[in-house]
C-alpha cells in the first residue's frame, strides 16, 4: 500500500504501463517523493496518539514500517533532486545548499533520519534501551524541519504547508499536553508508596 506511489513514480520515470509524470517529470518526481516522505512522517507521529486514544498497542508495529517508508521517500526525494534536477553537478549542489537555507533545512531532516533508520531493528531497540526512545524523539525535530523545508520553498500558495504545520503542531502538542499527566501518574503511586 505505501509502496504504490513509488512504483507509480518509477513507472512514470521509465515511461512504462502508460504512466506519465506530466509536463515536468523532474519536478513531479522531486515533489511527489517529498510529499510522500512528509505524509509518512506525519503518519509515524500519529501512531502514539492513536494508540493512546484507542488502546491498540499493535499499532506500534506499524510505526516502524511507516518510519522506514518516510526515510525511503526522503531518500528518493533527495536523490531525484540530486540526479535529475541538478544533474549530479556537485559544485552546483554544494553552492545551492550553502546559499539556500531551505535546502539546508531539508538536507538536515534527511540526515537526521539516517541514525533512526539504522537503529530501527528490534535488536538495536533492546541494545539501546532507554537511549533508543531518547534517540527516536529526533522524529519531532525531523517533522518540524520537514514542514519548514516545504513551507520555505512554496512560491505563494501556503495552504498545503499550513495544513501540514497544523497537523504536526497538533501531533506534537498532544505529547506536550499528555506528558505532565503521565509524569504525575507515574510519580503519584511512588509518593503513595513513600508515605505508606
Amino acid at each position: 500500500m505505501f509502496i504504490s506511489p513509488a512504483l507509480w513514480l518509477a513507472a512514470g520515470a521509465l515511461g512504462v504501463a502508460g504512466v506519465s509524470l506530466g509536463m515536468d517529470p523532474v519536478r513531479s518526481l522531486v515533489h511527489e517523493n517529498g510529499t510522500m516522505a512528509l505524509r509518512m512522517l506525519v503518519a509515524t507521529l500519529a501512531i502514539t496518539p492513536l494508540r493512546q486514544l484507542t488502546g491498540h498497542s499493535d499499532l506500534l508495529r506499524l510505526r516502524r514500517m511507516l518510519g522506514l517508508f518516510a526515510f525511503f521517500y526522503a531518500l528518493l526525494h533527495l536523490s531525484s533532486w540530486v540526479v535529475f534536477d541538478q544533474g549530479m553537478d556537485l559544485q552546483m549542489i554544494l553552492s545551492e545548499v550553502v546559499k539556500r537555507p531551505y535546502l539546508l533545512v531539508g538536507l538536515s531532516a534527511a540526515m537526521l533520519m539516517l541514525p533512526l533508520a539504522l537503529t530501527s531493528t528490534t535488536a538495536a531497540q533492546r541494545w539501546l534501551k532507554r537511549r533508543w526512545t531518547q534517540l527516536h524523539r529526533l522524529t519531532y525535530v525531523i517533522a518540524v524541519l520537514a514542514v519548514w523545508h516545504f513551507w520555505w520553498q512554496v512560491k505563494k500558495d501556503l495552504r498545503e504547508p499550513i495544513a501540514y504545520a497544523v497537523i504536526v503542531t497538533v501531533l506534537l502538542g498532544w505529547r506536550v499536553w499528555k506528558r505532565p499527566r503521565a509524569a504525575k501518574a507515574r510519580s503519584a503511586p511512588a509518593t503513595t508508596q513513600g508515605t505508606a
Partner: peptide, 8 residues
C-alpha cells in the same frame, strides 16, 4: 530562494 543561473 533559488538560482536563476540555469533553467529546465
Amino acid at each position: 530562494r533559488w538560482s536563476q543561473a540555469t533553467e529546465r
